[in-house]
């Protein structure tokens, strides 16, 4: 067995495999670090910065940063949590996130993070940008809700390995661009996968709206991340 390395999260002693990222190692030790652009099984890109932690006074994206021996990670400190909260609020004002009309409401990771941090109102003014909605045979792409996490860019490919989603433009104009010919051929299963990979309601499979009733949705009763924290409490109680 390869030797494990010791590190600390908020003073708690943790063990990690060599080469493991801070996010992965924290999860293995029952500590939740919030993520949005990262999705397990995909190559992390560290674009949303929700998973930011502080190590030796420096900000790092825990989904891309590997653990080193003796690392002291600040995760649930007031400063780090406030920084994450500000990012979530920025994402809310930069798009058009009308939760009451969104099919993803209750299963949305952006919304779930806002619930976890009990955000009552964003501190920034709403921008109400004009964005469009694109329709394809099996799914819809609503740019109003897109948070540019690039999960669809990384995860969705045709059988012969061609990308269907890509990014175009830069900075404030950045948006998802779709290969219309390939997207037109996406099957129902592929559309389902794209919808599940999307953390918000930007990619929606057609003709299945509001399928899960209120009270049975993913984040109705338990905050996002509680599945990781509960596992750690279970270990403690044994």
């Amino acid at each position: 067995m390869p030797e494990k390395i010791k590190f600390f999260i908020d003073g708690k002693e943790c063990l990690a495999e060599r080469g493991q990222t801070i996010y992965e190692a924290a999860k293995a030790n029952g500590v939740y670090i919030p993520i949005l652009c990262h999705f397990e099984g995909l190559k992390p890109v560290g674009s949303c910065r929700i998973c930011s932690v502080r190590v030796n006074g420096r900000w790092m994206a825990s989904c891309t940063q590997p653990v080193t021996e003796g690392m002291m990670v600040e995760n649930q400190t007031p400063e780090v949590e406030e920084y994450r909260k500000a990012i979530i609020e920025m994402l809310f004002v930069e798009g058009n996130h009308f939760c009451p009309t969104c099919e993803k409401s209750g299963n949305c990771e952006l919304q779930a993070l806002a619930y976890r941090y009990q955000i009552m109102v964003p501190r920034f003014p709403y921008l109400f940008p004009r964005k469009d909605v694109e329709a394809f045979p099996t799914f819809l792409l609503d740019h109003n809700r897109c948070v540019q996490c690039r999960r669809c860019v990384r995860a969705i490919e045709t059988k012969d390995g061609r990308k269907i989603f890509a990014m175009k433009n830069r900075s404030g104009q950045v948006r998802i661009n779709v290969d219309r010919k390939l997207a037109a051929k996406m099957s129902e299963e592929e559309a389902q996968k794209a919808m599940e990979i999307c953390p918000v309601g930007a990619i929606l499979k057609k003709e299945v709206g509001f399928k899960v009733p209120i009270g049975k949705r993913k984040y109705d009763f338990k905050p996002i991340g509680s599945e990781i924290e509960e596992k750690s409490e279970g270990v403690k109680n044994e």
Binding site: N96, F98, P100, R130
Partner: peptide
């Protein structure tokens, strides 16, 4: 106190804000 999404962010009437 602002009560509800419309008071807080404009809500459904604000769907016209992009047009």
């Amino acid at each position: 106190i602002s009560v509800g999404e419309c008071a807080i962010m404009g809500g459904l009437p604000a769907m016209r804000n992009t047009i």
